[in-house]
Design a protein around this nucleic acid. Structure first.
Lengths: 198, 198
DNA sequence: TCCTTTATCGAACGACCGTACGGTATCATC
DNA sequence: GATGATACCGTACGGTCGTTCGATAAAGGA
């Protein structure tokens, strides 16, 4: 009794991973349960399972979906800004706004996944590590562009600034989740501006 | 067949929570299993269970033990330094050293617990929130002392500096766990020094 | 219209979890 | 040396998890 037309597997997977991203931001990727997820998308446990073949594959697909959403909602709006400091400043605002409007009910997904798997060897950890490295690389490249354009001091260490910005955004996310006090975003924004020498 | 003399319940609990702290830094507080923990301290599942009465109590006791260890190993060595900027600088070094020497096999315990429970209402979340708030308060007080002593600019926001230092230490911890590259500690130390205007 | 493909379902499995409870050997006290 | 408290153990129960597998009904091409 297929409820959907043939070859709809991609859409169905997307519906599941979308729900999984939200759920995992709260309970963690390990806290995901195939049965619980199935209930949320009104399917049966065995159906959801057969879409991915294993829980590990479901987790990897969920991470992939979270990355895509992050790119769409954070990077997308600022992609057209002028590369260098202008885009970096816009990116920081977009980044914090993404957390502030609570797109993820449990806070920053990548931070959650990082802290959850950073000490557990396996493909999940490797995928998280690659993602984090790639993101830090993006930030670093933007800082380097800003330096070349004379928008930042020549003695600025791009990797340091990337590390700091990422640390601040993550702390803003879990700080807000813990305290439910929006002031942490003000603090984070001020701190980011200071890091970027404003 | 009691293996220990009477009234040894406190010592036994301490042995269990000590193992639990290490394990939870890797697998998370929710990932703790009473049976697994029992194997590690060479006791039976039912024995460990009856020491705490419930898993939730075990988790709370584990958090308490982690806080105590943190206080002993991070704050203890610098408690006698001169309050204000000197002690703050020493504290940052002690803090990073604590993570660098991998006392916790899975990285910063409080960060793990924070990210794990920040969006899950309950006594665990409340305890974590109180702990984090207290720690930020300690940092903030130290910054305020430094300002009063003229060691930091008068327009410094103590809460901002506390937020930044905590963000950097946490990021150093999970950054190291992910990359296994000790350079993150150099980066974090440099960033902390910069935050403190050195 | 028939036949193959395919998306979904239902039922069952073994493993592991937290929890409950009664038993048992040792200790402290008299 | 008998007695009661104490620290630990053995066993079992109900529940939930990931996973397997055969059935089923709609979709699509011939």
């Amino acid at each position: 009794m297929p409820r959907r037309p043939a070859a709809a597997v991609a859409e169905t997977r997307a519906a599941v991973t979308h729900a999984a991203v939200e759920r995992a931001s709260v309970e963690g990727l390990e806290g995901l349960t195939i049965g619980g997820l199935a209930g949320e998308v009104e399917m049966r446990k065995s159906s959801v399972f057969s879409l991915f073949g294993s829980k590990k594959e479901l987790q990897l697909a969920t991470l992939e979906a979270a990355i895509e959403q992050f790119r769409d909602e954070v990077w997308g709006p600022v992609a057209d800004e002028q590369p260098g400091l202008p885009r970096l400043l816009a990116l920081c605002d977009s980044w914090l706004a993404y957390h502030e409007r609570e797109v993820m009910p449990g806070g920053c997904f990548l931070t959650t996944a990082t802290v959850e798997f950073d000490a557990r060897p396996g493909p999940l950890r490797d995928a998280v590590a690659r993602t984090m490295a790639r993101w830090l690389g993006v930030l670093e490249g933007e800082v380097a562009t800003a330096i070349d354009a004379g928008e930042l001091p020549v003695d600025t260490e791009p990797a340091d600034v990337a590390f700091q910005l990422n640390a601040l955004a993550a702390a803003a996310s879990y700080g807000f989740q813990l305290s439910r006090d929006g002031d942490v975003f003000v603090r984070a924004r001020r701190s980011m501006r200071r890091t970027l020498g404003a």
